[in-house]
Amino acid sequence: MLKKAGYHIHKNELGHRGFFKFEDFKEKQMKFNQKLLKQIQQRDEYISKKLENRHREFLDAVKGIQETQKFIAASEEKKKK
């Protein structure tokens, strides 16, 4: 009779039996999944932005080192002359 009404039997970790309506469970699970998916997407955006910034800072540092090396090489060349 309860199964026809959409209820299901459930046993918890202590072995106690209870009834729940699958549609209610499904709705709660969908809300949880959507919230979790949003959190994962926000985390992924945060990580992507941090990686982009780190990459840009790394390239800026490499360019700075290259410019310094060129300046040093030019200075040494002038000293030779």
Rank of each mutant, 00 (worst) to 15 (best):
K81R: 13
A74Q: 15
K26G: 02
H8S: 13
N53D: 11
Y7M: 01
I9A: 11
K81C: 13
M1F: 07
F20Q: 04
G15A: 03
I9D: 12
K63N: 15
V62D: 06
T68I: 06
K70G: 03
F25K: 05
E77N: 15
I65L: 13
T68G: 06
I72A: 04
T68H: 09
D44T: 00
R56V: 00
H8Q: 14
I47P: 02
K4S: 00
Q42I: 01
E77K: 14
H16T: 11
Q66E: 13
R54E: 14
Q29D: 13
K63D: 15
R17P: 03
V62M: 04
Y7Q: 03
E13H: 14
K78Q: 14
N53Q: 12
F19V: 06
V62R: 02
K70I: 04
R17D: 07
L2S: 02
G18V: 00
I72R: 03
K3N: 06
Q42M: 01
E67K: 12
N33Q: 11
K11S: 12
H8E: 14
L59E: 14
K28H: 09
L36R: 12
E76F: 06
E76Q: 10
L2Q: 04
K70L: 10
Y46T: 07
D24P: 01
H8M: 08
Q69P: 00
F20M: 05
E23N: 03
Y46Q: 13
Q42P: 00
R17I: 07
D60W: 03
E45N: 01
R54W: 05
E57L: 05
Q69S: 09
I40H: 06
R17Q: 14
K31V: 06
H16V: 11
K80Y: 07
I40M: 05
F25C: 02
Q66C: 07
I72H: 01
N53F: 04
K3C: 02
E77Y: 12
Q69D: 14
M30Y: 14
L2A: 07
